[in-house]
Design a protein around this nucleic acid. Sequence first.
DNA 1: CCCATTAGTTCAGTTGATGTAACTAATTCC
DNA 2: GGAATTAGTTACATCAACTGAACTAATGGG
Lengths: 112, 112
Amino acid sequence: MSAESSLPECGVARFITLLDGPWATLIVRELLRGPHRFTELRTALPGISPHTLTSRLRRFEKHGIVIRTAYPEIPPRVEYRLTPLGEGLREVLDAMATWALAVPDGEPPVTA
Amino acid sequence: MSAESSLPECGVARFITLLDGPWATLIVRELLRGPHRFTELRTALPGISPHTLTSRLRRFEKHGIVIRTAYPEIPPRVEYRLTPLGEGLREVLDAMATWALAVPDGEPPVTA
DNA sequence: CCCATTAGTTCAGTTGATGTAACTAATTCC
DNA sequence: GGAATTAGTTACATCAACTGAACTAATGGG
C-alpha cells in the first residue's frame, strides 16, 4: 500500500510529513539559492550522506517539489531545481528564520 | 557541555533545532489554540508518550517558548501556555499549512 | 483502608532513520 | 592501459528518538 502517498489533512501535519528529518529543510534552503548538482548539494551540506541526500531528493521529486534533470554526458551531470511549488517554500523558510532569530541564543545570563 | 544551548546561526537551522522531531510542531499547533494541561495535550495528540511530551515541553520552556504553571492542588494541575515568543510561531505554522495544502495529495494522475 | 486522579519519572526495548564504506558505469586524460 | 570524474546504489552497522508499561506523591471519596 502506498500509504506514504496519502498526506494528512491537517496542513501542519502534512508539512512535517513532507519535510521531516534534520536534512530535508536544509536541502530546500540550499535549493532556494538556485539549482544544484548532486555533488554541490553534498558540499553545501557537510555531513549528509549520499544515501540520505538521494532519499530526500527522491521524495521531493515524487511530490512535485523539485525537478531532476539528468544530462546525458560523461561524467554524468544531474541538476536539481525547485518547481514553482517548491519555490513556495521560500516564504515558509523565511518565516522560520525570522522567528528563530528572535529566540535568545544561549541561556539567559545567570543573574542570581 | 551545554552545547544544546548554543543555537546555529542560520535561522532555518536554528528553527529545526528548536522544533525537531515529529511531535514538536504538533504540540505547538495545539498550544496555539490556547493553554492546555498535560493530560489535555496527551488527549489531543493520540500516540504521544508522556515521556516525549515532557521532554518537548521542557525544551520549549527552556527556550522561553512556553510557560509552565503548576497549581499547588491535589490532584496536581499544570498549565502550559505559549509566551509571546511562542505565539510568534503562529505565522510560521500558518505558512506551513498554507503551503502544504497546495501540495497535491496523492500521486499525480498517470497521464502518460 | 483501598481506589482513583494528575503529572510526571524511570526503565527497558524496538524501530526506523542515518552514516560508512565500497562498488558501478562510461568516457576522457595521461 | 590505468586513473579520475559524477551520480548514484547497495549492504551493513550504528544511533537516537520514540514507545510502552510500571511506578511515584498526595489527597478525596466510598
